[in-house]
Design a binder for these strands. Structure first.
Lengths: 168, 168
DNA sequence: CAAGAATGTCTGTCTCACAGATTATTTGTC
DNA sequence: GACAAATAATCTGTGAGACAGACATTCTTG
């Protein structure tokens, strides 16, 4: 865990000149920072940040089946297989038969999954708070709101090959 | 309530309930959206979005050497090798000997690199404008500003293994 | 009932990131 | 000046992960 005063003495490259105005880099940089901050918190959770989002979705029942959850997470359907496999093996989620469609499987968080998620969310909240600590509470909420609108608009894009190869 | 003319083009998963408040998902979603939007614009540019940022950094001389550019881009030093290799092979950047330190190599954009970058920036601006079209100009600038502060704070984190494995 | 679409899964393949070692050069220490 | 340690770039090998394509099952639509 790193604390505010605990910055690496490293002659920090800080923000790269000329890139700081590029939305490309701003999003990548923020995303990377968040990812790095989450890493230690998530610990041995299968598939790290993505596993966290999947568990989150499973707990909230945000998707009817595996395919829809995959779309929400922005991953390929074949990736979803071993993602859920590993979460299931860890006892955090379970595949339930959908009574309405025997092809579908409902992905739901187990009791242990809910418990784990709650514990993780406590700690991720701390991490996020630190990451956003330069922003006032109002600005933090504003940032979420703006990102939500951007992400919402981007939800319609073709996400094939969107995620993994680059930075991520 | 749905009306006759109100066609459900795609049963759009839209925003996943329960995830939309998670900064984790908001950043990932926005980042993915931007990545997807940029893909077609960048075309055959080596290494896509990351190559674009590298070219940008090379053009602005934001880094003294290859290692520092790698830090700014958030990539491993060994990754930087073939990233620059490919950009160099495409004639967009060049490795110059640093007169002050013969170990270092300055990564600079060639004439063709500047040209290509300028052309790309025109088109990426269009794409970004569309991605942000739900936001007013003031909000767009606000978003950039907020992200800059987040990314800036996150610049000090340990970025090892930050990027690739998870979405991105 | 037949044809087609959707869901989840499996297999094979291929790209990519990372650890570790290597070479060349610089910096620090005595 | 001589030596050790640190740093920059590179190369090799390996492993993880993403994707295309095919498949079995089930639903939907004509």
């Amino acid at each position: 865990m790193r604390y505010p005063g605990d910055m690496p003495e490293d002659p920090a490259p800080a923000l790269p000149a000329g890139l700081e105005e590029s939305l490309s880099w701003l999003l990548a940089g923020s995303f990377r920072a968040h990812l790095a901050a989450m890493r230690e918190v998530l610990g041995d959770l299968p598939h790290g940040s993505r596993g966290f989002e999947a568990l989150c979705g499973a707990a909230h029942g945000s998707a009817r089946n595996q395919a829809e959850l995959a779309k929400q997470l922005g991953v390929d359907r074949t990736v979803m297989v071993y993602l859920v496999d590993d979460l299931e093996r860890a006892g955090l989620v379970e595949r339930l038969a959908d009574p309405r469609d025997r092809r579908s499987k409902l992905i739901r968080a187990t009791e242990a999954g809910h418990e784990r998620l709650r514990a993780l969310q406590e700690r991720t909240a701390t991490v996020e708070a630190e990451l956003l600590s330069d922003l006032s509470p109002a600005e933090q909420e504003l940032l979420r709101s703006l990102l939500r609108r951007v992400a919402s608009r981007g939800a319609g894009y073709d996400l094939a090959h969107a995620c993994t190869k680059d930075e991520c």
